[in-house]
Computed example of a mutant assay.
Amino acid sequence: MRVSFGKVIGTVLMALSVAPVHAAEKLKIGVVGLTHTHVHWIFDSEKQGEFEIVAIVEENKDLAQRYARQHNYSMDKVYDSMDAMFAAEDIEAITAFGTIYEHLEVVQKAAPKGVHVMVEKPLAINMEHALQMQELAEQHNIHLLTNYETTWYPSNHSAYEAVKSGEIGDIRKVIVRDGHKGPAKLGINSEFLDWLVDPEQNGGGAIVDFGCYGANLMTWLMEGKKPGSVTAFTQQLQRENNPKVDDEAIIILGYDNANAIVQGSWNWPIGRKDMEIYGETGAVYADNRYDYRLRHAEGYDDFTETKQTLPERKAPYHDPFHYFKAVINGDISVAPHDLSALQNNMIVVEILDAARKSAKTGKTVQLK
Rank of each mutant, 00 (worst) to 15 (best):
L145P: 07
K121T: 12
N329H: 14
V334F: 13
C212S: 15
V262L: 15
A335V: 12
R289T: 14
M85Q: 05
R293K: 14
V8N: 04
E200C: 04
N202Q: 15
V78W: 03
Y317V: 02
D247T: 02
W195D: 10
H22V: 10
T231S: 13
M1P: 02
Y300C: 01
A162E: 14
K173A: 10
K181E: 03
F43H: 05
L123A: 03
R295I: 08
E280R: 09
V262K: 11
A359L: 06
Y255F: 11
G205T: 07
Y255N: 01
D274E: 13
W220C: 01
V119N: 04
P243Q: 02
D246S: 02
Q366D: 15
N259F: 12
A260I: 04
G114P: 05
A110S: 04
G214S: 06
E52M: 03
G203T: 06
D353G: 13
T146Y: 00
D246C: 01
E52A: 09
R272W: 08
Y213K: 14
W195T: 07
K307N: 13
T309H: 14
M85E: 02
M85A: 05
G264W: 08
K109Q: 15
E46Q: 15
V327Q: 03
D256F: 00
N189L: 14
W220F: 14
H40P: 00
A24V: 15
G282Q: 07
T151Y: 03
N241P: 05
L310D: 10
I56T: 02
Q236I: 11
A260L: 03
I261E: 10
S17T: 04
T150G: 04
M75F: 13
G205C: 05
S190T: 08
G211D: 09
E149A: 09
R356T: 04
W152F: 04
V208H: 11
I351K: 12
V119S: 03
I53P: 00
A359V: 06
H180C: 13
K357H: 11
V163T: 03
N147T: 01
V230P: 00
V174W: 00
N156M: 11
D287I: 08
K28G: 00
V262R: 10
M85C: 08
Y317Q: 04
A215I: 08
D274C: 09
L310F: 11
R295V: 04
H116N: 12
E120F: 10
I347V: 14
K360F: 09
L342C: 10
S165I: 08
M275V: 03
Q70W: 14
A93T: 04
R172Q: 15
N288M: 07
G264D: 01
H129N: 06
G254M: 01
F324A: 01
A232C: 08
K47D: 05
N156H: 13
M218Y: 08
R356A: 06
K61Q: 07
H40M: 08
E135R: 06
A137Q: 05
V174P: 11
V365N: 02
E248G: 12
L253I: 04
V365H: 04
A341M: 13
T364R: 13
K314Q: 13
F51C: 10
G282C: 03
Y292V: 06
G30D: 02
A249K: 05
H116W: 06
A55T: 13
G362L: 02
L367A: 05
P269L: 01
H337I: 06
D301N: 11
V348P: 06
G264H: 03
H38Y: 12
L342M: 12
M118I: 12
T361R: 07
G254R: 07
